[in-house]
């Protein structure tokens, strides 16, 4: 599904990712763990195609296709999704309008017809209900005035609506209380299928209690230094990064 080969990324001419390789197969859930500043968010943003993240060498292949030159929205069209660590507030744009425009943008990219308003509403209502999001929140401006937990749930609703093949979730668990964490985990597990992949980026092992990863990577200073099964996450929690890596 995703194949990252010897990736080097610089931001403002400072190298953050320093030769990272990663392969995720369909049906797999991977977790990347690491301390602040290890380059985890940079990796997520780079895969999603953020402008100011410069790939100096290496490649990113998605479903067998090199996506390094694709625009962010084109990558979504291909089936990728990035869940933000800090979802952005957009005053004046309603959540519904936002999601509908997004979904139809993706459908257009794939050469599919636009979804009718009625069909779309039906879809969103179901997905929002799954994630315990009120219709009131759907009508509000994107993330404006949302609590931390509400923002993350909103990310999950968007993911469910767009139904990506690969979801990269950047610190989706941060700032959540235990109930919200369970709801978000349910959202992630619902997206977990034989034909989809998930890349969780996290600081703590907490989320991994609810979403069992197949593979865990430890990232330090722009590189993956260790890869293992889910027991690696437990070990990290107990011993800390310095000992494990």
């Amino acid at each position: 599904m995703l194949k990252v080969t010897d990736l080097h990324v610089s931001v403002d001419e400072k190298e953050i990712i320093k030769g990272l390789s990663l392969t995720i197969n369909p049906g797999e859930v991977h977790a990347i763990m690491g301390l602040n500043g290890a380059g985890k968010s940079t990796l997520a943003n780079t895969i999603a195609g953020r402008d100011d993240y410069e790939i100096t060498s290496g490649s990113i292949e998605f479903a067998g296709k090199d996506v390094t030159e694709l625009e962010p929205h084109e990558r979504v069209g291909e089936g990728m999704f990035l869940g933000f660590q800090y979802p952005v507030e957009i005053p004046g744009v309603s959540n519904l309008n936002f999601m509908r425009t997004a979904l139809n943008g993706v459908r257009k990219y794939r050469g599919e017809d636009e979804m009718s308003a009625a069909e779309f509403m039906k879809l969103v209502r179901v997905k929002a209900a799954d994630l315990k999001m009120s219709t009131d929140m759907l009508k509000r401006f994107v993330n404006v005035g949302f609590s931390g937990g509400e923002k993350k749930r909103n990310e999950m609703v968007q993911m469910a609506v767009l139904d990506p093949k690969l979801a990269i979730l950047d610190e989706t668990d941060s700032g959540l209380d235990i109930d919200a964490l369970k709801t978000v985990a349910d959202g992630i597990n619902a997206q977990r299928r034989d034909d989809t992949s998930i890349l969780l980026i996290t600081h703590y092992q907490r989320l991994l209690d609810y979403v069992q990863p197949d593979v865990v990577h430890v990232m330090i200073d722009g590189k993956i230094v260790k890869t293992g099964g889910k027991e690696l996450a437990v070990e990290l929690e107990e011993k800390g990064y310095a000992d494990v890596a």
Binding site: A48, G49, R50, D51, E71, P72, H73, V76, G77, L82, F84, P87, V88, I90, V93, N97, F98, M99, T101, A102, L103, G105, V106, Y109, Q158, L162
Partner: peptide, 19 residues
Amino acid sequence: ALFYLTSRGIDPATARQML
């Protein structure tokens, strides 16, 4: 905001217009 919109599959021109 522009990146957030495009990262949801909205093309840049539409995203700009929406904003």
